[in-house]
Structure formats: structure tokens, C-alpha cells
Amino acid sequence: MDEKIFVCRCEEVTLEEVRRYIQMGFTTFNELKRLLRIGMGPCQGRGCREIVLREISRATGLPVSQLNPGTFRPPSKPLLAGLFSIVESKKRS
């Protein structure tokens, strides 16, 4: 196996990629998310977010507490789209 270090397990984004993109000037979590899909996998950033923020902090000198951790869109795990499929015909009780 090669020497990749994964920051985001779900989308298989490496530490090297994250650092390279931060160097290119993408210093917010949301930018990195859009470019690398980091945090967009099934765990929705539960594993990678903090590591990425730490890297941004190291590169920009801003403490993590001052960084935007990105948007937390629902749902927080993959759902079967089919489950929504007959919503219309059911009335909420």
C-alpha cells in the first residue's frame, strides 16, 4: 500500500490534498468541501471536520474557534429516497 494519509475516510481525501488546496487559497471548510467533497460522504464530516479545521488554522494562523466549520445540511446520514415516495397519500396524524 502507498503512503496516503486519509483525512476524510468516506470521500478518501488525503492530508496532502487538503494541504495543497489550502495553499492554493481555499481556506474555508465549505470551499474545500465543494472542491474535494470532503465532509460530503455518509458520515457528513464527523470524522474529518476537525482535522481540516486544524489544518486551516495552522495555515492561516487563526484559532479554530474563529473558523467557520461549514454548513450542516440535513440529513446527517444517507436515507432511502424511496421512503419519501408516498408521502402525499399519507396524512400526518
Binding site: 424511496g82 421512503l83 415516495s85 408516498i86
Partner: peptide, 8 residues
């Protein structure tokens, strides 16, 4: 089918 739909 009975599992589908948003029960509330």
C-alpha cells in the same frame, strides 16, 4: 408500502 411515507 406500509413502511413508506412520513408518519408523524
Amino acid at each position: 408500502e406500509e413502511l413508506r411515507g412520513l408518519f408523524g
